[in-house]
Design a protein around this nucleic acid. Structure first.
Ligand code: TTP
Ligand code: MG
Length: 1100
DNA sequence: GGGTTGTACTGCG
DNA sequence: TTCCACGCAGTACAACCC
């Protein structure tokens, strides 16, 4: 359909060119129906032969996968519109009348709250990126020029726009439109620098101006105008003058209006290099809005415009308040309705958004890294790429000193279908080795895949400092360090560091890494950590980060390439343990040991699990904070760890066996290092019920030196550091004193010592060889002789025992504690396949669990998957591997030879089997890893080389650009890290040469751009006297409880308004044909297949 | 009925 | 000959838990 608003101008503003009205004439030509984001109206499009542009775009697209995907999406939109039309047609008169009345009341309330007292100015730089390049190379001003590359254009100068070249247009199409087009690669460092200059000017008019991205800002110029006796018109002219004169000739366009939303709309009217002032009167506003195309309103995009037009015939803001307004209220959500009504009234936010404390808040909700490349099918190659992405993400997170809990893998198939798969981790993490395993798990569950893009994203963020400032951290002598005070870089990318074993994910490690905190006594040790450099250099100052702190490191000290790094992870971890591991260990206790198993928060039904209020438990030791309903640690989202720590002032470990509803028979197993696991069914005390119901797993057992440690019941809990005794004084002021911790080194020694003692029967292997990250990840358990292990599927690390779960009854049956030497194990049958996960379990096999109960012993290194994956001598595996052919579960009555599978306590996922592991695959070589058949066919050299070439830096193309790209380029030797090289070698038509940096992207890392309506539209500042009930979206918390624009969903439609329709169905498992619900069930299902295939492989 | 998790979709620059 | 980015924010909804 024609772009109704393509050439809209307010009635008062004389059109600069004779732009025709939208022609609703029929479209005999197919190209006229192909809507793209860049066929929308945009400044500089006047006089463009839109018909021709449309035709060329269509011709260049019509046979592509991208086009087909666009068609698919368009069909979904059409279907959505059709549903809305049907619903609309079904509305009865009474219904409509009632809705109309309430809407009118609401409109009246909104009108009553209208605030015309402020003067808002929105400034937007003209073709910003292009202008920056033009300022540097004036000859470009007269040539058609685009910023970006053949794959994608970020923006174009006005000469190029005359040809129809636009933002978000693929370069090859632009080239077709304008063969003379000059491409200039992105250079985010330049844009950032230019933006700083511009902001300095903005600050002159409004010290509190709000950035809307690199190139735009909102200024409340009310005070400025009053102080200088200026009219809005003069203020806008003054701002533009100052920008032009002090920013190297860069120009901007401005809009002035009584609220932010209108100001933004106005800034586009006289673009480029112009301004438009909307008078602050209700009449002027209403007149302006009356004919304003809906598409001009921020947050109404291509789809919403179509929906409004198609379903209700609404094309202008004025029509939003017209006869259709009652239907509007009945078809759309509450939030959407409010948003539409405000648009119709010309309302918007009139006050500054509150500032947040960036030192405490992460300053963002999520952080991500993604890449597009040529079609990639080989799983090994994909996993190698995942590793690079994770490394890059970890580096970025380190530089911002943030950690997160919600990890998302994004996949775009070659048909442009996008999939996201996410997990909520048991704790906050930020190190690459903590993130990769879950990412790989998500990735593997989707195979087979033919990809064109992969991305990783972390959300649920918090500042690392939050954890580091804990009482324990202080107790351990941690002290804050300035960004520059960190030891010299010993390695490169933060996330690349070997981290797994000493619990890298903990606060201490990261703190040392990013220079925020470091153990007072171990800075030297920290200096030796390969991961310390990048973050340290860049920590703190944004400018540092922009300078590419995490990329610019000495090649010699860089992390090894992915392949070798993966292979040597365990050993490196060991080294850390030996050297600087002390600090990690100590901190790990503070943080890592807080990992709360899913059962704690997602606990089962009856027994209540961990959310039971400990305060209700009689006998709660004094001095230990009781977690009542008003302070539900499990409810406090991101801070449960800290809350506990805050109140306990010491590390603790807890395992809540009350897990899922189906796990009633599981018991609490609370362990402290070196202490033999006491299986619930063997220990003193009652059954599972009491623990689960009482909640004393937490509260009743918390150590407290006022009352003394609570008597262990079936669960044991103890501060790991208590064993060593002696040391610093406890912290005061937390309601209790703490057992003085020993020096860190003693703690570590005590820990490993105690474990070693407990495992004395088993050979004491070289710790350096103990922890091993299996290259392929799945084989799962990384064990150390000191009892620490890491789940490779989730991020759990620590010394909790791993529990073995019976395949038949699904109950925990034992631990991975060292057990008596098992009898030699004859390998018997081969597991059958066929059966589904739950039944397939009986795939027989020679699995014996010699000891079906109690502590098990594993001596055969091969028994540990980790051991198998470890190149070196195998550690005394903590994994129980028994060798009998039959065993009996003591929870249920199962007796047989089903293999036992290992399940991680923390993530509750199957991680491997007790069957002898398959031969260790080679290190993560893209071509060879896993699924050789797939690898063989899809494999290009790219991935392979990527794996092998991680020669120097953990960098990546786009970010190399946005942070250090310019610098590197200037130096004549562009940094080429693993991701960057992989990208360069595989980028599908996006990069010319391997040396070329990414041509498109976004300047991540800077302050996130506010893209929602929150803050744009009128906020909760007004008394929202609504006649309607349940305006939850408005009142609930969010002071800016603005409807975020995208919220425009249909209300109550049974079908996914979000076009989620059709997706609800089960997925068919390619392995067994089972229909499995997507989501966690699917993951679990694929876990089983992996585990079983592992068992089979081993048996064979 | 409330909260949490996971997913798709929309929009912005 | 090929060939359509990246990073961020937000809403809605289903499924599940308490
Ligand atoms: C729209 C868009 C912009 N950008 C970048 C490049 C732009 O120069 C910068 C600012 O975006 P815009 O302000 O939307 O565009 P512009 O400044 O280039 O042109 P105009 O004169 O119309 O304001 O953001 C992208 O990278 N991708 C996009 O899709
Ligand atoms: Mg601009």
């Amino acid at each position: 359909m024609a772009q109704a608003g393509a050439s809209w101008r307010p009635a008062e503003a004389p059109p600069p060119s004779p732009s025709g009205a939208p022609d609703p004439s029929p479209n005999p030509a197919p190209w006229q129906d192909y809507q793209t984001v860049f066929t929308n109206a945009k400044a500089g499009m006047e006089g463009v032969d839109k018909e021709k542009v449309q035709r060329i775009v269509y011709e260049m697209s019509k046979d592509s996968a991208h086009f087909r995907n666009e068609q698919r999406k368009q069909a979904a939109t059409a279907a959505r519109i059709e549903r809305l039309r049907e619903r609309s047609a079904g509305l009865g008169p009474a219904e409509l009348a009632a809705a109309g009345r309430s809407i009118d009341e609401r409109v009246a309330a909104l009108e009553a709250g209208r605030d015309l007292s402020r003067l808002w100015l929105h400034a937007d730089m003209d073709c910003f990126y292009a202008a920056v390049h033009e300022a540097e190379r004036p000859e470009l001003k007269t040539q058609p020029m685009a910023v970006g590359g053949i794959g994608m254009i970020s923006t174009a100068n006005y000469v190029a726009r005359k040809y129809g070249v636009r933002s978000a247009m693929p370069g090859f199409i632009a080239k077709k439109l304008c063969p003379q087009l000059v491409f200039v690669p992105l250079d985010f460092a330049k844009y950032t620098a230019a933006a700083e200059g511009v902001r300095a000017v903005f600050r002159q008019l409004d010290p509190d101006f709000e950035s809307g991205g690199l190139d735009e800002a909102y200024l409340d110029v009310t005070d400025f105008c009053a102080a200088h006796g200026m009219t809005p018109e003069e203020a806008a002219a003054e701002l533009r003058r100052r920008v032009r004169e002090s920013c190297g000739g860069l120009t901007c366009s401005c809009g002035v209006a009584p609220n932010k939303t209108l100001a933004k709309i106005c800034s586009d009217i006289n673009k480029p290099d112009g301004h438009y002032v909307l008078p602050s009167s209700r009449e002027a506003v209403m007149r302006f809005v009356d004919t304003l195309p809906t598409r001009k309103v921020p947050c109404i995009g291509k789809v919403t415009e179509q929906v409004l037009k198609g379903a209700l015939g609404i094309a202008t803001c004025g029509q939003l308040l017209g006869p259709q307004r009652a239907r509007l209220g009945l078809l759309f959500s509450e939030a959407a309705l409010g948003f539409f009504l405000e648009a119709g009234l010309g309302l918007g936010a009139t006050r500054h958004a509150p500032k947040t404390d960036r030192a405490v808040e992460p300053g963002r909700k999520g952080i991500s890294c993604e890449r597009t490349f040529r079609a990639m099918r080989a799983p090994g190659e994909q996993e190698a790429l995942a590793g690079q992405l994770v490394e890059s993400l970890a580096a970025d997170m380190a530089s911002e000193e943030i950690e997160g809990r919600n990890l998302t893998l994004k996949l775009k198939l070659t048909n442009f279908e996008v999939r996201t798969r996410s997990v909520t981790l048991p704790r906050h993490v930020r190190a690459a080795p903590d993130m990769l395993p879950p990412v790989l798990r998500l990735l593997r569950a989707e195979q087979p895949l033919e990809l064109r893009l992969m991305g990783v994203r972390m959300a649920g963020l918090r500042k690392v400092h939050a954890a580091s400032r804990s009482p324990l951290a202080r107790l351990l002598g941690l002290r804050p360090q300035g960004p520059g005070s960190a030891p010299p870089a010993a390695g490169a990318g933060t996330g690349a560091g070997p981290t797994t074993t000493p619990d890298p994910g903990d606060s201490a490690t990261g703190a040392a890494v990013n220079g925020g905190f470091a153990p007072a006594s171990s800075s030297a040790a920290a200096a030796g950590r390969a991961i310390s450099a990048g973050g340290a250099g860049g920590g703190g100052r944004p400018s540092s980060r922009v300078a590419g702190a995490h990329r610019t490191t000495e090649p010699g000290s860089s992390p090894p390439p992915l392949a070798s790094r993966t292979a040597s992870r365990g050993a490196q971890g060991r080294n850390e343990d030996k050297t600087s591991g002390h600090s990690s260990r100590a901190l790990r206790l503070a943080d890592g040991s807080f990992a709360v198993p899913p059962g704690l928060t997602a606990g089962g039904a009856a027994g209540g699990g961990s959310k039971a209020e400990p305060s209700s438990v009689p006998g709660t030791p004094r001095g230990v904070h009781a977690y009542g309903a008003d302070e539900p640690f499990a409810h406090d989202e991101d801070n449960e760890d800290d809350d506990l720590e805050e109140h306990l002032g010491m590390p603790y470990e807890v395992y809540d066996g009350g897990g899922g509803a189906s796990d009633d028979d599981e018991d609490c197993v609370m362990l402290e290092d070196g202490e033999p696991l006491l299986p619930p069914w063997e220990g003193p005390g009652g059954g599972a019920a009491d623990t689960a119901a009482s909640g004393d797993a937490l509260c009743g057992l918390l150590p407290c030196d006022e009352t003394g440690p609570a008597p262990p019941k079936r669960a044991r809990l103890g501060p790991a550091c208590a064993a060593a005794g002696g040391g610093a004084p406890g912290t005061a002021g937390h309601g209790h004193s703490l057992p003085p911790p020993p020096p860190l080194c003693q703690q570590a020694a005590a820990q490993s010592g105690s474990v070693a003692a407990a495992a004395s029967e088993t050979p004491a292997p070289d710790p350096a060889a103990a922890a091993g990250g299996p290259p392929n990840g799945f084989a799962a358990v990384a064990c150390a002789s000191n009892g620490h292990w890491a789940c490779l599927l989730c991020t759990f690390k620590g010394n909790r025992r791993q529990m073995l779960r019976c395949l038949a009854c699904d109950s925990l049956r034992g631990s991975t504690l060292p057990a008596p030497p098992p009898p030699p194990l004859p390998s018997t049958g081969e597991p059958t396949v066929g059966s589904g996960p739950n039944e397939g379990a009986d795939a027989g096999g020679s699995r014996p669990a010699a000891a079906s109960r109690g502590p098990h012993r594993g001596q055969d290194p091969r028994n540990s998957a980790a051991a198998a994956a470890t190149a070196g001598p195998s550690p005394a595996s903590a994994t129980t591997v028994t060798t009998a052919t039959t065993w009996t579960c003591r929870i249920c009555t199962y007796s047989g030879n089903r293999r036992q599978l290992l399940r991680c306590e923390a993530c509750d996922n199957l991680r491997g089997s007790t069957a002898p592991p398959p031969p260790a695959p080679p290190p993560l070589q893209p071509q060879q890893q896993q699924r050789p058949q797939a690898a063989a066919e899809g494999g290009t050299r790219g991935g392979s080389s990527a794996g092998a070439m991680g020669s120097s830096r953990a960098t990546k193309a786009p970010k190399a650009q946005r942070s250090g790209g310019a610098k590197a380029a200037a130096a004549g030797a562009p940094a080429a890290g693993p991701l960057e090289r992989l990208w360069a070698s595989r980028s599908g038509g996006q990069t010319g040469t391997a040396a070329a940096p990414a041509e498109t992207g976004a300047p991540a890392g800077a302050v996130p751009v506010r893209t929602s309506l929150a803050g744009w539209h009128s906020g909760g500042s007004r008394p929202a006297a609504r006649g309607l009930e349940g305006h939850t979206a408005r009142t609930a918390g969010a002071r800016t409880g603005e409807p975020a624009a995208a919220a425009l969903r249909v209300k109550g439609a049974g079908e996914g308004l979000v076009s989620s329709g059709g997706a609800g169905g089960d997925r068919r498992c390619p392995e067994c044909g089972a229909q499995v619900a997507p989501g966690p069930a699917w993951l679990e299902h694929t876990d089983w297949h992996l585990a079983l295939s592992l068992s089979r492989g081993a048996a064979a």
